[in-house]
Write a protein that binds this DNA or RNA. Structure first.
Lengths: 142, 142
DNA sequence: AAAATAAAAGAGTTTTTTATCCTTTTATAT
DNA sequence: ATATAAAAGGATAAAAAACTCTTTTATTTT
């Protein structure tokens, strides 16, 4: 469904939201451990998300990653788009570039419904709602 | 959503169904052209599907690929499973192996609905129903 | 101001996926 | 029987994705 990179990204953002809900920051090493991902790899991904404003970071002692108010309002769909692009929300299920409403592939209309529901679901899931004290330690690992 | 390999596979099977609905066979070169895929690559994929009984082939002059009655009754879900496995139908949206009903990830329940609809949609889409004289030439290319 | 710390950036490497090439086998027609 | 056409199989190459390491830059603490 999503690339591995994208899965890590979503898990990391949820983790950061949970860990920094009362202010503060969380370091890359803790994030990697918290979501069971390769440290240097998730670091790259977060750099990218940071550049795109989907999360924030500061360097130096007491530095780390966190989410500002705007970032908290973003949805998981925004994360997915930032990492994997919007093909999963808009692209043809059979990979046909010319497939469209007026020129549909054999499963276009059925597929459209699924894609739409997926999009809506992920649009609705705002980062800020994942701050409940869930058992993150077990939930976001492997 | 699906791997490129899987997209080619589904397109090829639909193409074969359409081309051989009145009997006969279709050669790999025509299939490759018909779905705009690399010839040797789709050949490999079809070998695999043939081994799994999802389609048939014969060698020699007048040989080619075709679908017997059983193959016609298979669904697109069967093709997808044969190529990409069933992870898309069963796996966690965040890639968490331990995610389950009793130990759900943050988006488990919402995701489940999407996966189920996707599965049902593809289960319902039987290969034999794609034999209508659709404008395959334009539809399954690129 | 210097040292320590933590992320950012850049430059690889490895693994997986996708694609190509070439030889062998098999079925059919002549 | 022989020639031919087509798939099967094995081996390799190219591209993309996943992952690692090193250097740089910014910030804080002393």
């Amino acid at each position: 469904m999503f690339s591995k990179t994208c899965e890590y990204a979503v898990r990391a953002v949820i983790f950061i939201a949970q860990q920094t809900k009362d202010g503060g920051k969380v370091g890359i090493r803790d994030i990697a451990k918290g979501i069971d991902s390769p440290e240097y790899f998730i670091a790259k991904i977060l750099q990218e998300l940071s550049r795109k404003g989907l999360l924030q970071s500061t360097k130096g002692p007491n530095g780390g990653f966190y989410l500002d108010k705007t970032a908290m309002k973003h949805s998981l769909a925004d994360i997915v788009k930032a990492v994997d692009g919007d093909n999963i929300f808009l692209g043809c299920g059979l990979g046909l570039k010319q497939c469209s409403e007026s020129h549909p592939c054999p499963i276009h209309h059925e597929f459209k419904k699924i894609r739409k529901q997926l999009a809506q679901m992920l649009e609705k899931a705002k980062v800020g709602t994942f701050t409940a004290e869930l058992e993150v330690q077990t939930f976001l690992r492997r």
